[in-house]
Each structure stands twice: as C-alpha cells, then as structure tokens.
Amino acid sequence: METLRARFETLRWARGADEPITEATARATTPASDDVVEISLRFCDGGIESARFRAHGSPATLCAADWACEYAETGGADVLTLCATDVAEALHLARIQMPAALMAVDALQAAYRRWQDVGAQEHQSQQTVSTV
C-alpha cells in the first residue's frame, strides 16, 4: 500500500530548478484552498517523454501531482482516460482530499490537450485551464 508519507519523501517527478517549463504546461486550482498544481509535459515520437510538476498545497496535492506525472511518464497509458478516483485509490486519499486528485488529473489532461491543440505550431504561453 502506497503511503503519502513515502511518496512525499521523494516527489521524484517535481520539476527541478534547471528544467525549463515546456509549451505543454497547464495549471489547475481549487476554490477549496489556495492549492495549485502545474504539470509540464515533453513529447517525443508522438508520446510523452517526460512529465514534471510544480505545486503548492497540502501533502495530498503534492503527492497527487507527483503520482499523475509518474503515471503519464511511465504508464504508457492514455492520460485522457485517467480519473481522479484512480489517483485517490492509488494514494488512499480521504474524501476530503479529493480536490487534490482532481487538480492533478485536470492539470495533466489540460497539458496533454494543449499539446494536441497546438499540434506542430510553436506556442509559448501557459495558462490556468481549470478550477476544480
């Protein structure tokens, strides 16, 4: 069973100081608190090469963002079918922590869609796509 504490200790998918923001970047926020999740994707050969996050908030928010990045980068799965309940189950989140899972999924899927929408065009801006 994955614990928040164990994941919080590493947060391996955090975007480091030397890793620049990518064009496929999106943020999600929540009216429940001042928490925010930002996920940046990098692509190669039509697939996700790397997924990195920055976040402010509770341990659940940081861990959900980290988990979503791991899923996107290593799962080879379709990120657009990921549900917040998948994140919540994987991290054993309590009901009250559900906004954390929603933000992580929203930021990830929005970043992915930005890459799809933009296609081959160059696009530098980033945006906050959702408020859960």
């Binding site: 947060l11 955090a14 100081a17 923001i21 943020r27 925010v36 930002e38 920055r54 976040a55 402010h56 940081l62 980033q126 906050t128």
Partner: peptide, 10 residues
C-alpha cells in the same frame, strides 16, 4: 524544499 516546488508566479 516547499518553496522550490512552487510554480513560478503566473
């Protein structure tokens, strides 16, 4: 560590 994890100001 928490400061470094924060997104840059939008």
């Amino acid at each position: 560590r928490l400061t470094a994890l924060q997104p840059e100001a939008a």
